[in-house]
Design a binder for these strands. Sequence first.
RNA 1: UGGGGCGUCGCCAAGUUGGCAAGGCACAGGAUUUUGGUUCCUGCAUUCGGAGGUUCGAGUCCUCCCGCCUCAGCCA
Length: 572
Amino acid sequence: MSAGKNTPDTGSENNINRPSNFIKNIIDEDIKNGKNDARVHTRFPPEPNGYLHIGHAKSICLNFGLAQDYDGLCNLRFDDTNPVKEEDEYVKSIIEDVKWLGFDWEDRLYFASDYFEHMYDFAVELIRKGKAYVDDLNAEEIREYRGTLTKPGKESPYRNRGVEENLDLFSRMRAGEFPDGSKVLRAKIDMSSSNMNMRDPVMYRILHASHHRTGDAWSIYPMYDWAHGLEDSLEGITHSICTLEFEDHRPLYDWFLENLDGVHRPQQIEFARLNLTYTLMSKRKLLRLVNEKYVSGWDDPRMPTLAGMRRRGIPPAAIRDFADRIGVAKADSIVDRAMLDSCIRDDLNKNAKRVMVVLDPVKVVITNYPEDQVEELTAENNPEKEDAGSRTIPFSREIYIEREDFLEDAPKKFFRMVPGREVRLKHAYYVTCTNVIKDTAGEIVEIHCEYDPATKGGWSDDGRKVKGTLHWVSVKHAADVEVRLYDHLFTKENPDESREEKDFTAFLNPESLVTLKNCKAEPGLRESEPGESFQFLRKGYFCSDSKDFSGENPVFNLIVGLRDSWQKIENK
RNA sequence: UGGGGCGUCGCCAAGUUGGCAAGGCACAGGAUUUUGGUUCCUGCAUUCGGAGGUUCGAGUCCUCCCGCCUCAGCCA
């Protein structure tokens, strides 16, 4: 895997590894024109106020991917300009998640808060140029003066204060002389602009709050619009990529940098954020799912958070592949979850070790098999991978098979176990059902079969054709395991678009988690590593739960099911 | 009703200067198969939100219309 480092061998001409998109077209053009000395330098700028989700992963893959494709650099920068919302706990989890995704920012880990002093100086520069002023209006008054979408705003009575007075007031704001909310520093632009962002936006607010990194050193904190462009400029960012809702902010982003002397001028480019069917991306709503206990936490395997997906067993390479496949554009969209599932299967098919686990067991007795005999049979670990080797699994007179793999009265298309019909037990023998034992309620309690000793290993050279192959587990060797079956968190493709103003929780899928306690696994599974993933033959991909798994209590999570064409036939 | 965006197959999405619609997912057939998995073939937009116009020729240029998203935090 080479996804970690910025690879040195891919210039702008030969980055055919990832599909084209409008951002690459812009970059290609910039390089052709020698802009920024043909450098490409991006950044991923999360605010440390929550956990990363797959929407962020799209942005991370985009920014780091661009750096890889153009032999450039990508910084990890925390946009920590609001001390009341941000916590160190989040910077730790974000760092862990970006690393897990497979990206490396080398020594370029930055914090907006490291630039506070520099930003202050820039603000003083604007004040000196008469382009910023201290306003005494309170929040509500500022809102009133701002006007509306269709009506222009009014200028603040404090707008034309002298430079010296502004300088004095601003330094006293910094010194902590004024209470929260009593004053702000605003840019002097245009109160009648049709772009609300240009109506004298606030640059600094007074906040007597302790910051996770600067502590109590500051009593004023910069606003996003003021801070972000400066951060980008200071780091030499060439292409500052953000989501669509910041499109309206671009004139302001440019205005600040235009009005400062001798600063580097990055270019802001906006793209559409990711939406995925059957889930949510809103931080606020995900927080509610956690707080109101609809899920077990931020790392619940059903959550679209990177922590959740990691625990679910989704390989980071699958997420990177997904990001490449969905592309980057400016049209609002909602990507089909099946696309992600396809990427996951693609990766796991190549890499996951095959094992046999019976989720819903029914006992089978092979009546012509010697009572106390046990054979160690050889099973390949992965037919897709030569060097995956093989393992040995015990076979004996009594085994478990999947309850749904047996039918007394079967349609012609049913290839599994049926009285009188020969089927193959994977890696073992051909067997034929001879009898069915039921309890008084008519429930099948035991199936009797006879095996053909000449078919050891599950093969016969006589040209006999066996349509069905079943997975099985020896009764006396079986490991009892718990299996957690996960499904979409919501029953609705877009739980966000609540028609009759229903709350999104109304669309929660009651079957998003089904726990199976009586599953029977081949014995080796007891020794798996927490977080290790497998293909449970004929069922799906599962991983041992990184939190709850232990040798005494093996717990496995469903990552994604196998494609099931029988299910499709059955549904017709 | 002000501004900024977007509208190409069910879902994503390519489409440099107009030259006659990539690819993936999904779906449907078929072949191979000790996983009804994988793999492999095959099919799947006479059409690009709509209507006009320019042109030998338009998804790409012009005009008008329609729809959707977004902006009035001292959040980011």
